[in-house]
Computed example of a mutant assay.
Amino acid sequence: MSSSLLFLDSSTSTASHLLPFSRITTPFNGAVSLRRSVGPLNVRPFVLSPLRTLSVNSSNNPSPVINDKSGGEASAKIIDGKMVAKQIRDEITAEVLKMKEAIGIVPGLAVILVGDRKDSATYVRNKKKACESVGINSFEVRLPEDSTEQEVIKFISEFNNDPSVHGILVQLPLPSHMDEQNVLNAVDIEKDVDGFHPLNIGRLAMRGRDPLFVPCTPKGCIELLHRYAVEIKGKRAVVIGRSNIVGMPAALLLQREDATVSIVHSRTKNPEEIIKHADIIISAVGQPNMVRGSWLKPGAVVIDVGINPVEDANSPRGYKLVGDVCYEEACKVASAVTPVPGGVGPMTIAMLLSNTLSSAKRTHNFQ
C-alpha cells in the first residue's frame, strides 16, 4: 500500500480522535447569519503580532533550549503541554482578577448541550471546571435530544444579547434532525471563541487582516512553539492534515510567522519525502503511529495533535492513547516532541479560556 493512502483527513469522522478535551466542530459554509447583532464591518480584530496568550514571565517558562542533533542516541526534549497550560491558566487567573478589581467585569463563557451523549457531557464538564479554575463565569444550558433547532437558536440569541457572556459554544455533535451550520451561524461573531466563523478564517488567511479569534487547537500549537523558544521565521514547516479544525488554520498561522509551509494530505504522493525536509511538523490526521522516525529530519520539532486509541492488553481500559507520530522513534530523531496525551490536548482548553478573556477585554476596552 502506498504511504499516501494511509492518510485520513481530520475533516472526516476521525476528527473525534484529534481533540479529546474540546468540542469537535463543523466549520461554517461561508453564509453570514442575519441574526447576528454585530455586523462584520463593526468588529475590532484581535491583533496576532505576536501571537501571545498573555504577557509572559520568562522566569516561569519552560527551558527554551532545544538543540539540533544528528539523531540516534540522545532523547528529544519533551514539550510539556500540561505544564504550559497550567502557566497560561495562572496568567489568565491573574488577568481575570485584575479586570474584576479594576472595572467590575468577569468574563463569561456559555455552553449549550443538546442530548445526553456521555462524551459531550464530559467535554462540557471539563470546560466548566476549567472556567472555575481561572475565575471565569460559566453558563450552561442542557436541552433534551428532541429539542427543535429553533429552541437552540433561541438560547443562542439570548446569550448573544447577554452582556455578561463573552463567549458561546454549542457542543457538537447536535442531534441529526438539526442543521449544525444554521445553529452555529447564529452565534455572534464577537462571541465565536472557537474562531471557526468564515470571517475569522478569512481574516486569518489575508495579509494585513487579523481575526477576532484564532481556533483553539492551532493557536495552542503555535503557543507551545513560542513558549519553548522554537524559531519559526524562515523555517520549513509541514502540516499533516488539511481540516478546517486544525490543519488549515495551523498552516495559516505558521505562514503568518514567516515559515515556508507545505501541507501533506490524503492525496499527497510520497509524503515522507516532504516531511523529511521539515524543521517543524504539526500532525493532525487521526492515524496512530503513522509518521515514523525515519520520516523526520534530525533535529526537527514535532507537534502531535492526533490522539488515537489502540488496543493494549496491559492497560486496565484495554487500550492506550497514542499520537499520529511514533513517539518512541521520534524521540530518537527530533530535537523536541509533544507527548500524547499531555501535549496539545491541555492547550486547547487553555486557548479557549484565553479567547474568552480576550473577548471580554475587547468588549470593555480593557488593556
Rank of each mutant, 00 (worst) to 15 (best):
I112T: 04
V65K: 10
A74T: 12
P62C: 10
R52A: 12
S133I: 02
K77S: 12
T122D: 08
G108N: 03
V84T: 11
R52E: 14
R89T: 11
S49H: 12
L51M: 14
T122L: 13
V96Q: 01
K118D: 12
R117A: 13
V43D: 08
D119G: 09
A94Y: 02
S138R: 03
A110V: 03
N57V: 08
V111P: 01
C131G: 06
K86A: 05
L41T: 13
V111K: 01
E140A: 08
Q87V: 06
R44T: 12
E140F: 11
K118R: 10
Y123Q: 10
G71Q: 02
A76D: 05
R142A: 06
D119A: 13
F139W: 04
P50V: 07
T122Q: 10
T53W: 05
R44L: 06
G135Y: 00
S49N: 14
V141Q: 06
E91M: 06
I88Q: 00
L109W: 00
G81P: 05
R89W: 04
E101H: 08
E91Y: 03
A121W: 04
K118M: 09
K98W: 03
V65D: 11
E132L: 09
S70N: 12
A74I: 05
T53H: 10
D80Y: 02
V47C: 13
A102Y: 07
V56Y: 06
E95D: 12
S63Q: 03
K100Y: 08
V111N: 01
R117D: 15
D116A: 10
S133T: 07
E91L: 03
R142N: 14
R125W: 08
V124W: 02
D119R: 12
F46C: 11
V134K: 03
D90H: 03
E132G: 05
R142K: 15
S59L: 08
R125G: 10
N67P: 00
D90P: 02
A110Y: 01
N57W: 03
N137Y: 03
V141I: 15
V47W: 07
A121T: 14
V84G: 05
G39E: 09
T93C: 07
V47S: 15
P62F: 04
P62D: 07
A121L: 13
N61L: 14
V106H: 10
I136S: 02
P107V: 05
N67D: 08
Y123M: 11
N57T: 09
N137Q: 10
I105N: 01
V134W: 00
L41H: 14
M83W: 03
D90F: 01
S133A: 14
A130E: 01
P45K: 00
I103M: 13
E132M: 08
R89I: 00
G39R: 13
N42F: 06
P40W: 01
V65H: 10
V56D: 11
S63W: 00
E73C: 07
A76Y: 02
K86Q: 12
V56L: 13
T93D: 07
I88T: 01
K82A: 04
R117M: 09
I88A: 00
S63I: 02
N61V: 14
A121Q: 15
K100C: 06
L109H: 00
I92E: 02
N137S: 12
A94C: 04
R52D: 13
Y123R: 14
M99L: 08
P50Q: 08
G108A: 05
V65T: 12
N126Y: 09
R142P: 00
N126F: 05
I66D: 02
V43K: 09
M83Q: 13
N67V: 08
